[in-house]
Amino acid sequence: MFRRSSRCDGQQETCGCVNVAIVREAVVVTDERGGTSVFDHQEWSDFIAGVKTGEFDLPTVAGIPV
Rank of each mutant, 00 (worst) to 15 (best):
F2V: 05
R3H: 04
R4V: 01
S5G: 12
S5P: 07
S6Y: 02
R7P: 00
R7G: 00
R7V: 08
C8V: 06
C8E: 03
C8T: 01
D9R: 05
D9I: 15
G10E: 09
G10P: 10
Q11R: 15
Q11I: 00
Q11P: 00
E13F: 00
E13Y: 02
T14N: 09
C15N: 01
C17R: 05
V18Q: 00
N19K: 03
N19I: 00
N19S: 10
N19T: 00
V20M: 04
A21R: 12
I22T: 10
V23W: 03
R24T: 12
E25Y: 03
E25M: 09
E25T: 03
A26N: 14
A26K: 03
A26V: 03
A26I: 01
A26Y: 12
V27M: 08
V27C: 09
V28L: 14
V29I: 15
V29N: 03
T30D: 06
E32G: 15
R33K: 09
G35V: 04
T36S: 01
T36A: 06
T36V: 11
S37V: 11
V38R: 15
F39H: 01
D40K: 11
H41P: 03
H41E: 03
Q42A: 13
Q42V: 13
E43S: 13
E43W: 04
E43I: 04
W44L: 11
S45Y: 00
S45I: 07
D46N: 06
D46M: 09
F47D: 10
A49M: 01
G50L: 13
G50N: 14
K52F: 04
K52Y: 07
G54Y: 13
G54V: 09
E55C: 12
E55H: 06
F56E: 13
F56R: 08
D57S: 14
L58S: 14
T60I: 04
V61E: 14
V61A: 07
V61G: 08
A62K: 07
I64G: 08
V66L: 07
